[in-house]
Design a binder for these strands. Structure first.
Lengths: 344, 344
DNA sequence: TCCTGCCATGACAACGTTGTCCAGGTTCTA
DNA sequence: TAGAACCTGGACAACGTTGTCATGGCAGGA
């Protein structure tokens, strides 16, 4: 027990190190390092002996130590809102593919739309010394990241811009998309259109609401307070909003759903409604084609890919000024958005 | 330039270290460590001085170094098939929540159903010395993980069992679920039922096919070769399979879809078909309720949670024998599975 | 034969942190 | 007041790897 007295916990289950391999192969430590990393300057015979020792001992290089020495982790962090949301799956996957192409791994975590949790996560990732950070912000103040960014952590924001700091952002044109969607409804004869979105705290939600108002204004149409939901993705509140808008003194004949969560609930609510109501949603959702739901589609994978590519360009030394990239949307007409206004 | 000659790359962008903080605060290195880690034995006054220095320099502890020293990374790896698949989102998220509750971060990667890529990823995670590994296997030989597991990497397999090694596995009862689903169709009068699943290489796919055959046999029904698709989730091939089964000499009156990918394609194909065809699918999918699709639902989040809890029990020292946990399924009757057989 | 130069190899320090141990000072007790 | 007990603080080594540099052997040319 004496010789392990200084080793309170079995480190990594007492794995063999390069030193052990070197001893076994009867070579120096650095030679093992050379073999493991495929560096030149090792005789085939020596290499074979080292490889055998590696095999026998079941050695695997400890990348923690490597990282400490090299100063690069080959890891990027992704802070998103909820990995379980079908919108973020493809985004995440796209980031992962780009990272993989650059030999990097991905650590990701969900903020659950909680600014404190976002900060905690992002800073934990910085403590791990990720080379870069991709953040889908929940909060609206990202000054806490300034020291990190100054210290060299490349950072790109996706889906929503950073708050109170100057940083790269890759966004979908929420304003334009919503305006197009609402204009589409107006073009099909609607004059009283309801908007149900997420909390206006969230940048995309605010932008989409702004797009809705712009389209109405462009067409010279008024917007009644009763036609705009206060904002929440909670199914119960969305259902209430739908019910109230359809029962208002000036009832809406069409609805615009501000994101995928809201959209599925609205689709369900309208399915139970006797009178046809036109509907356009922001975000495509699976099987929306079969249900004939017209949507403003955004490309989640493209968001992720674009952000990741920008991140790696920075990591590869590009020294561009922070910029905002805005991706367009696509209107997919499938029926629900082309229903004409129905009399009561 | 002389003093940086030995430093070819700016490590972590030249971040301050505890040494720098110590110098600034006029204390010893270890005292900074104590403050940072909230260890006792520091006067309030000293602590304040250190905190100030930390603030001014923008110091953040380098967890890479910490990990090297402590031998634990507080990180678990998750190897899944495709982060973009809506089935894996909730699973991933559930794992993340459990990890978070244990103070660990999650590195995840997609194998894209490629055994080599699965191995590459899993071993890369082991090289990073993740404390534990959760794997949704793509390959059917996991002997490559044996040295790692012996070396102390806790490993739990999810959704599909490990191949050729003895390890924990958390599975859904694919056999029972499929048998129940097919029995449900039989109970509604069907005698000629088609099965379209994924490649039988995949354990769950094989089990579901077995469940289908068992249900048919239990009912004394024959299974024609033409009723069983060779297995692929490729939409084109699924559509072909549907078409051929409906046009076979003994055409099927009902279909069983082996997973969510197959199911959406089958739903689309049947929507375009003139005659009603009964359908039950494995895996619930969003909006399936509105489309009236009867499914055998499995709980992806429960899979992830159960696996992660088992993993952390092991990390906390539990020394149980590897076991297999099987979670049940739920039949959700929504209409498509209750359509009676239709004459040609 | 001797020298030059190259090549394979290894010794050593350093990356930034934490665990151990010791020193010096203070407080309490006999 | 001496001694013990305690507390704060710091020096030092170690974690496992990689970059730098030195060394020794060997081939080739003069």
């Amino acid at each position: 027990m004496a010789d392990t007295a200084r080793r309170p916990e079995p480190r990594y289950g007492n794995r063999p190190t390069m030193k052990d391999v070197a001893a076994r192969a009867g070579v120096g430590l650095k030679t093992v390092s050379r073999v493991v990393n495929g560096e030149p300057g090792v005789t085939p015979d020596t290499e074979r002996r080292v490889q055998e020792a590696i095999e026998i001992l079941g050695f695997r290089r400890n990348d923690s130590a490597r990282v400490l020495r090299k100063g690069r982790t080959a890891t990027v962090g992704l802070v998103l809102e909820d990995l379980a949301d079908p919108f973020y799956g493809p985004l995440s996957r796209a980031v992962e593919e780009v990272a993989r192409a650059h030999g990097a791994l991905l650590i990701n975590g969900s903020s659950a739309e909680d600014p404190d949790r976002e900060q905690e996560l992002a800073l934990a990732l910085c403590a791990r010394r990720v080379d870069g950070l991709i953040v889908i912000p929940s909060g609206d103040d990202h000054r806490y990241l300034e020291p990190e960014m100054r210290a060299g952590v490349a950072t790109v924001f996706v889906d929503r811009p950073a708050g109170l700091i100057d940083a790269d952002a890759v966004l979908t044109d929420s304003f334009g998309g919503a305006r197009d969607g609402v204009a589409h409804l107006i073009a099909h004869g609607h004059r009283r259109i309801g908007f149900i979105g997420d909390r206006p705290r969230i940048h995309t939600a605010a932008e989409r609401l702004r797009g809705y108002r712009a389209a109405m204004e462009d067409a010279g149409l008024p917007v009644r307070d009763a036609w705009v939901s206060p904002g929440s993705t909670d199914p119960e509140r969305v259902r209430t909003a739908v019910r109230e808008m359809l029962a208002a003194p000036e009832p809406v004949t069409a609805l615009f759903a501000g994101n995928n969560r809201v959209l599925v609930t609205v689709v369900r609510a309208l399915a139970a409604h006797p009178r046809p109501v036109a509907l356009v949603g922001f975000d495509d959702i699976e099987l929306a084609d079969l249900l004939g739901v017209t949507v403003i589609a955004q490309d989640a994978a493209a968001l992720g890919r674009t952000a990741a590519e920008r991140l790696f360009r920075r990591l590869d030394g590009a020294d561009e000024a922070p910029a905002r990239v805005v991706l367009g949307t696509t209107l997919l007409a499938r029926g629900s958005g082309e229903i004409p206004p129905q009399a009561d």
